[in-house]
Design a protein around this nucleic acid. Structure first.
Lengths: 204, 204
DNA sequence: GTCTATAACGAGATAGAC
DNA sequence: GTCTATCTCGTTATAGAC
């Protein structure tokens, strides 16, 4: 076992994940290499294999950490105790933050690379989307119960539309380097729920 | 100049484009190689370079042919003389056909790969999206003029939301191998325009 | 944990014969 | 137009010393 890293630092495995994550989110899984990570971290390629046996295992670890952190962010939204509309706005805000960093959603990017991924990575990507939709369905049903939202379709359908709408908005807005474009699409998406506060989301 | 290919056949350059197009749409620009194309076509890698100097030139040709065909498909929709709502449904139908083939939109895929693309390919990808939005804006404005559509925002914003919504629906539905999922998202997208015939689109 | 060294392969690309 | 042969480089991965 590695000992606990010092305050303000991160152990090598974490730093490998940090660098790889950014590279995958901006260049795709087939657009980065161990050499890229090694040179940026200042160690050799061979040393990377000590921490992650191969690119497939590194990829799995990337998705798992990303999904765990995403789930934490969703729990943090829940704990604010705000209404359904505010939760959905906060959800869209996570995506906006990713775009401001010049990145695609990790699993949105891997969805594009899906056919080239090893099986364990594929499974993890689908699980990520399923978990996101499950959370969204919960929020949407809560909103309907409270009378804050008036959905045009089933909560399941609306959840899928929100997820794919936000992923698509990231996908298209990023090449244009245009956060405003993303915000406009996100706004329309939220407005289309039949929600009350159509005008709330604005580009920061 | 090559002579005209016989009926039912295609010249080598076209067949290279056909194979490459399918590979890029399913595996991404960094997920296919000259070797893949050569072996499928039954010629050597070296011969490919006679038709396309390099991967960058092949990529440019791919986007240009795709954009030209897409524009033809849009003109074909226009020439049917149907109303705005039917045009939008036909537009979504193009995307559905791509998904049924197990593919992503060529330029949606290249949007994910954007950061790794040579400059001419980047420009061509952005142009494709701009042209799509321009067509959508025209249809939306026509629909408003005729009273068939009641947009919640500007035609420009709605066009961007439709484009990114459909691209995102493709991106997410494809790994699940789920055309129904795409149709549900496309339906909701069209319904959110404030259009009249919310219930029209169905999975084929 | 990190290194050097190297294996083993695949990538894009070129020269020149046919 | 297509071939063989070759080049150069990048990629993932392993062996074994420190």
């Amino acid at each position: 076992m590695a000992r606990r890293p010092e305050r303000g630092t991160a152990d090598t495995a974490s730093r490998i994940l940090d660098i790889s994550e950014r590279l995958v989110q901006s260049r795709g899984f087939n657009g980065f290499s161990y050499a890229d990570v090694a040179s940026e971290l200042g160690i050799t390629k061979a040393s990377l294999h000590y921490h992650f046996a191969g690119k497939a295992e590194l990829g799995e670890a990337l998705i798992n950490r990303y999904a765990t952190r995403f789930a934490q962010a969703l729990r943090a939204i829940d704990e604010r105790g705000v209404d359904a509309q505010a939760r959905l706005e906060a959800y869209a805000g996570i995506y906006a933050d990713v775009l401001r960093d010049g990145r695609m959603c990790l699993c949105g990017m891997l969805a594009a690379d899906y056919e080239t991924l090893p099986e364990p990575m594929r499974d993890a990507v689908l699980r990520f989307f399923d978990e996101n939709e499950a959370w969204l369905i919960g929020v949407l049903e809560q909103g309907e119960d409270e009378g804050a939202l008036h959905l045009h379709g089933s909560a399941n359908e609306v959840a899928q539309a929100i997820l794919s709408g936000l992923e698509g908005a990231l996908l298209i807005a990023r090449p244009f380097g245009d956060v405003v474009r993303f915000q406009a699409a996100a706004n329309r998406l939220m407005a289309s729920l039949g929600a009350r506060r159509d005008e709330r989301l604005t580009a920061r």
